[in-house]
């Protein structure tokens, strides 16, 4: 992998392209782009060995703005295209940008298979809970009863939670962050980049045109301390402005409960300590109902298992060792032949 390494130290500028960024002013996509451009140089990977792949949507314009290789494919199919890229050249660092519609509606099937296969790619899902590019229809992550142009009486389908979905199909890395939380997002991106296997990161992204303020209830400065729990491996699940609230497991119901910690509350020892290697933690945290519970952000789950591309390579190597380099003339002759 040494040739992956960039010989010179890169900067944010090196990752910017000469293309005009065409998102609406104020769109959350800008801050995600800036964040990615800022942390990518840290990974030390030469730009020519990075490929950004996307589907279709506002979020899927992302590759045009990254000065790496980029492939803007078709709606929902980025994981399938990335599979081919990674199979053809496992050395490449492959990143996917997708939306809640692209990744969970039309492309839900491919996303599921990518996650279960543990293909070594990094997926950023820009979740704005709306179809941005097609001008504001509800998406699979929109809340029940969502009123949009296509659902004037309110949507009638239950939303899917991206992180819970990913855990459900056995993803090896699942994280959540927020477009405007620069520091947190950078940290999560670093973790995702370091993960070997499919790293799935859901980013709450504000679409200020069609779903403005969708996440204000827990991202607003005034409330975020009370409404977010920032999970970290090995640390107690505490939140609140004074870190005086915690999550405890009720062993009888196998459900989480919010408890007050310290004075007049429970002892710190009763608060769950996050174990990101145990997917059950991830699933409990991903599915906490809001606003009864805070929204969990951070690395919900991270574990190691063989990757699809790694295992494939190993099979290939084994075949070559066992059978030698293929001999075409012999292959064409097949089983029984006769000469005239």
């Amino acid at each position: 992998m040494s040739d992956l390494i960039s010989p010179t130290k890169l900067t944010k500028k090196d990752f910017e392209t000469d293309q005009d960024v065409r998102w609406c002013p104020g769109c959350g996509d800008y801050s995600i782009l800036a964040n990615v451009q800022r942390v990518m140089p840290e990974f030390g990977i030469a730009r020519e060995n990075i490929v950004w792949v996307s589907g279709i949507g506002c979020s899927s314009r992302f590759p045009y703005y990254m000065n790496t290789y980029g492939f803007h494919t078709i709606h929902g199919r980025a994981p399938a295209v990335a599979l081919g890229i990674k199979v053809a050249n496992p050395e490449l660092s492959v990143w996917l940008a997708t939306g809640d519609g692209d990744g969970l509606s039309i492309g839900g099937n491919h996303l599921m298979h990518c996650l279960r296969r543990n293909l070594d790619v990094k997926i950023l899902m820009f979740n704005n809970r709306i179809y941005g590019l097609t001008k504001g229809q509800y998406s699979p992550t929109s809340e029940l009863g969502k009123v949009t142009k296509s659902t004037p009486a309110g949507s009638v389908d239950q939303p899917v939670d991206p992180a819970s979905f990913a855990l459900g199909v056995n993803a090896s890395f699942v994280a959540r962050s927020i477009d405007t939380e620069a520091q947190h997002l950078s940290d999560v991106l670093r973790r995702a980049a370091a993960h070997v296997g499919t790293a799935f990161t859901e980013i709450y992204q504000n679409c200020n045109v069609f779903n403005d303020g969708a996440f204000d209830a827990f991202t607003d400065k005034a409330v975020r301390a009370e409404r977010q729990v920032r999970v970290e491996h090995g640390k107690p699940l505490l939140f609140g402005a004074n870190n005086d609230k915690g999550l405890r497991l009720n062993p009888r119901t196998l459900a989480l409960e919010v408890v007050t910690v310290g004075d007049g509350g429970v002892a710190l020892s009763e608060v769950l300590v996050h174990d990101e290697t145990n997917p059950a933690f991830g699933q409990l945290l991903a599915r906490m109902p809001f606003p009864e519970f805070p929204v969990a952000i951070g690395v919900l789950h991270a574990s190691q298992r063989p990757t699809y591309d790694g295992t494939l390579r190993a099979q290939q190597k084994a075949a070559r060792e066992k059978l030698g380099q293929g001999d075409l003339a012999k292959l064409l002759r097949g089983g029984s032949t006769w000469t005239i």
Binding site: F71, I74, P79, A80, G84, I85, V87, N89, N109
Partner: peptide, 20 residues
Amino acid sequence: VQAEDEIAAVCLALGASYAG
């Protein structure tokens, strides 16, 4: 690669061509 469907099959073939 036995893909999850024919859409994935053609897309991954294309991805492979993209990568050379």
